[in-house]
């Protein structure tokens, strides 16, 4: 029991983080793509595709943070101080983009809040990539507490991860617009998605090569035998997915490019798990080192098994309720 509880929790938190990345990913992506039009009514159309969802999407981030606090308090207590600055920057960026979303609806001049929405979304995405990169490259730990400096995370690798996530979210956002809009916005998004697809592939390749090269532990995980026999399909499937995404974008398909972008994220996520399992705080603390007491994990697990299906049910309901295209000049109110 005690052995596999942390495994279950790692899977649950992984799912929450992944849900967050997918769901808030496309709505942050809309913010990243915001400056690509000069038309206010097109911007309104873009925000309306995410308006009913964004509050709920950001809640997955709280679940990820709270989940870490609940199930792995000792990892939470190391990661947050270690990545203090990028975490705070991410939070402040989310504050600005969140209020900008509501404020631009009630403000006479939208210029300032459009800017805040764009910069906030981009900075939040970048900071999330930096947090991920900072974690992958390892955190200094002594006696179970963070023992490094305030800027340990600031490496070229972490910044590359930041750029990758900005590109990836923009891709999700563009393919979301292909799915949810029509007219000039959808047309432009299709072109952007193609460019972004290439950019994201290049960035993914760069991160994927850099990680094992700078990190013997991860190189061994991927390139030692027999692991290599099992793992080589991961990059292959990634390439195949990207190829299909490109074809679907060329052929004027609407839903498949978005699904393919999500699949690319899933593959990237699987790659991360393969590289780092069972470490939660590489290179020293595993999920078992940092787990909460079994009684706490069980108590929360019962609640999660009961509540998470309900949550997923009404999240699905709201996506169904607001299904269909958003047209220019159309309003929900």
């Amino acid at each position: 029991m005690e052995w596999y509880l942390p495994l279950i929790w790692a899977a649950l938190i992984g799912t929450a983080v992944f849900m967050y990345v997918l769901l808030d990913g496309f709505d942050l992506g809309i913010g990243i793509l915001f400056p690509s039009t000069r038309s206010e009514s097109e911007r309104d159309q873009m925000t309306r595709t995410i308006a009913p969802y964004w509050d709920g999407n950001e809640t997955w981030l709280i679940l990820g943070g709270a989940g870490l606090f609940v199930a792995f308090p000792r990892a939470y207590a190391v990661i947050m101080p270690a990545l203090y600055l990028p975490v705070i920057v991410m939070l402040l960026a989310l504050v600005f983009r969140g209020v900008a979303f509501e404020f631009r609806h009630v403000s006479y001049s939208k210029t300032g809040w459009n800017f805040a929405f764009n910069v906030g979304s981009t900075l939040a995405a970048f900071a999330q990539g930096v947090i991920l990169g900072g974690l992958i490259q390892g955190v200094a730990v002594r006696d179970g507490a963070f023992s490094g400096g305030s800027f340990d995370w600031a490496t070229p690798f972490a910044f590359l991860c930041g750029l990758s996530l900005v590109g990836g979210y923009a891709l999700l956002g563009a393919t979301w617009l292909v799915l949810k809009t029509e007219g000039p916005v959808a047309h432009r998004a299709r072109g952007q998605a193609k460019v972004l697809l290439l950019v994201v592939l290049a960035l993914m390749a760069a991160v994927s090569l850099w990680t094992p090269l700078s990190n013997p532990r991860i190189a061994e995980r991927w390139f030692s035998l027999p692991n290599f026999y099992f793992l080589w399909p991961v990059p292959l499937v990634t390439a195949l997915t990207a190829y299909l995404a490109w074809r679907w974008l060329e052929n004027g398909r609407e839903a498949p490019p978005f699904l393919a972008s999500m699949a690319l994220f899933l593959l990237g996520f699987i790659g991360l798990v393969i590289s780092n399992f069972p470490y939660l705080v590489p290179p020293s603390l595993t999920i078992w080192d940092t787990a909460a007491a079994p009684a706490s994990q069980i108590f929360m697990l019962l609640g999660t098994l009961l509540l998470l299906p309900i949550v997923l049910g009404y999240v699905a309901f709201i996506y169904w309720l607001f299904r269909g295209k958003v047209r220019e000049g159309e309003s929900y109110h």
Partner: peptide, 21 residues
């Protein structure tokens, strides 16, 4: 931790999602 976890799962999603409606 679990008290905060229950808050997120039982309340935050409920509020944020039905606010959309």
């Amino acid at each position: 931790g679990p008290l905060i976890g229950y808050e997120v799962l039982s309340a935050f999603f409920l509020e944020a999602t039905f606010l959309g409606v």
